[in-house]
Design a protein around this nucleic acid. Structure first.
Length: 567
DNA sequence: GCCGTTTTCGGCCCGACTGTTTTCAGTCG
């Protein structure tokens, strides 16, 4: 039974498709939005939504009511929402694909289907080429052109990793700040919220001479393409393919605009809905009192949130996931910061074949970052036949010279297909710190293997739990709620891995883990000196997960941490 | 379809841009 529960992603996909099809049928907009919202919510839920629905608990989530809950149960029972099955029979599958094309919304897609009888993307292309779309009133040459251009483009470029976006946007912000015309410059958008990947990089500024600033951006050396260039707005693409969007705004509503362009969309919608209930209308230009017509503008975000009755909300929390309610009550958590970390507990050296720097170099670099301790966690399979003892000898020789900084004897073991780990109990018993990770066979009962690894009394922490790789693979299908429960029972810690393409646990899962009572560790899994700085990414992820210093084990001294972990 | 410090009915975020139009619907973020 439990093994066959549909994944949240599959459930969400059905609701999204149902929303598309209803929209094509001209269904009322708010029903459609309700399904899309539910899909969104389900996709980011940590536990299996199907189990909640079966228990009648799903409708307690905001945005899911009796109807949607019963539709989730239909998916469990018969594999598909009944209403979806019905509509799939009525609407050709190709028509829903039209909606993915720019400038093609449901109204237009429906007319193309019903009035021209076009039901596949291939036919749509042919019709556009034959200039047949413009026979419909309201459609013209430009629309045909746009459709053809979109179809010619390569499908779905990859999203930019935060690790690439962050230094790039910071560099551009710095450059713009130096320009004499600029007064205030800030990153905005998803990069400011520190989402794990971003599509484009938003920057907001105020300036004495806005046109001079947008002009300056378009003429910077590294700009390869100028997509838009006006007096208050410019979009440029860099040689490495990053898209920057600069908006220059009036100084007296800088707070309103920074808030608006930081998003997220979900956060802004929730904020505005809440404002409407209080007789206020919020836009990027100001807060209007509907009754008196008075408009309040804010020079800072702090002012704006205060006017609306909230604590200032850190950008990392602005995802419409309960932050407004918490901020209204003044109960936002004090989020963990990079400076809180006392040590890095996942790091490789040349003792692992894929490590680029020696143990000595890595350890020195960790100490230079100001940590109190570091765990050397090379891969177990490179430490056979005396090599483990040899590594310990090196550590023993090095350690006294660095005191009081502490080098921990660690190891990263792999969780095998049978749930055992690839190092003997004797060797493990000599370690200060043991990480256990999935490295292969991700589809072979991953949950049971992870649960079994946690039963091992030597395993202190799970590394990169789902083993996902951003832009490459989705990660193991784990029953995370069971994993978190077992982690609490056994006293096993769970890592937030800071590698740019891992960031695993992801934000919503880390939040669920902490809420379940799991202690988390933020570590870098460094294979070279420069990677130690990835701690910033892991911390950003932790902040998106609402984590406080207390919920992150390696904000403690090693002595304190010893009391938390398995004996 | 969801939801409730006016409401179990009647609301549901806001504005810009675009293309095709003579005043706006559709799409997008």
């Amino acid at each position: 039974m439990a093994a066959t529960l549909p994944r949240n992603a599959q459930v969400a996909e059905q609701f999204d498709l149902l929303a598309d099809l209803l929209e094509l049928e001209g269904e009322e907009q708010f029903r459609v939005i309700a399904y899309r919202r539910a899909a969104d919510l389900i996709r980011s839920a940590a536990g299996p939504i199907a189990r909640l629905a079966l228990d009648g608990e799903a409708k307690k989530l905001p945005g899911i009511g009796k109807t949607i809950e019963s539709k989730i149960v239909q998916i469990v029972d018969s594999g598909e929402i009944e209403a979806l099955t019905k509509r799939k029979a009525r609407i050709p599958s190709g028509v829903a694909e039209f909606l993915r094309l720019p400038a093609l919304g449901p109204k237009t897609a429906r007319r193309i289907w019903q009035e021209l009888g076009i039901t596949t993307v291939a036919d749509l292309k042919r019709a556009a080429e034959a200039e047949r779309l413009r026979t419909l009133p309201g459609l013209g040459a430009k629309t045909e052109e746009r459709i053809l251009r979109a179809l010619a483009e390569k499908p779905q470029e990859k999203r930019t990793l935060l690790a690439a976006a962050l230094p790039a946007v910071q560099a551009v912000v710095d450059v713009l700040r130096e320009h004499p015309a600029s007064t205030q410059v800030s990153e905005a958008g998803s990069v400011r919220r520190r989402t794990e990947t971003v599509r484009d990089l938003d920057i907001i500024a105020t300036a004495s001479d806005p046109a001079a600033l947008t002009d300056y951006l378009t003429k910077l050396r590294w700009v390869s393409e100028v997509e838009a260039h006006g007096k208050t707005k410019a979009t440029v693409v860099s040689h490495d393919g990053l898209r920057f969007d600069l908006r220059v705004v009036p100084p007296d509503s800088y707070g309103n605009l920074l808030q608006h362009f930081t998003g997220s969309k979900r956060h802004n919608v929730a904020l505005r809905e809440d404002a409407v209930r209080r007789g206020l209308s919020v836009s990027e230009y100001g807060v209007k009192d509907v009754e008196s017509g008075e408009v309040f503008t804010a020079v800072s975000e702090e002012e704006l949130y205060e006017r609306l009755g909230y604590q200032w909300i850190p950008p990392e929390l602005r995802e419409g996931a309960g932050e407004l309610e918490a901020a209204r009550r003044g109960e936002l958590p004090k989020l963990v910061e990079v400076g809180d970390l006392r040590g890095d507990l996942h790091m490789h050296s040349t003792w692992s074949n894929d490590g680029k720097n020696t143990l000595e170099e890595m350890v020195h670099a960790a100490r230079d970052r100001g940590y109190d301790y570091v765990a050397v966690t090379d891969h177990a399979h490179y430490l056979r036949e005396g090599r483990f003892q040899a590594q310990w000898d090196e550590i023993a020789e090095l350690a006294p010279r660095l005191e009081p900084f502490r080098i921990l004897r660690g190891v990263e073991v792999s969780i095998r297909a049978d749930g055992s780990v690839d190092m003997s109990d004797d060797d493990l018993a000599g370690c200060d710190w043991v990480m256990a990770s999935l490295h292969s066979a991700f589809d072979k009962s991953p949950t049971e293997r992870v649960l079994s690894a946690m039963e091992n009394p030597h395993v202190d922490c799970l590394g990169h739990l789902t083993a996902r790789k951003l832009n490459r693979r989705g990660g193991a299908d784990l029953a995370l709620d069971r994993v978190f429960e077992k982690a609490v029972d056994t006293g096993t810690l769970i890592e937030i891995n800071s590698q740019p393409d891992r960031l695993d646990l992801r934000d919503v899962h880390a939040r669920a883990a902490a809420e379940a009572g799991v202690q988390l560790v933020i570590s870098t899994d460094s294979h070279e000196l420069g990677a130690l700085a990835y701690m910033e990414l892991g911390v950003a992820q932790a902040r998106r997960a609402w984590l406080t210093k207390k919920q992150v084990a390696n904000t403690r001294t090693w002595r304190q941490l010893l009391k938390l972990k398995k004996p």
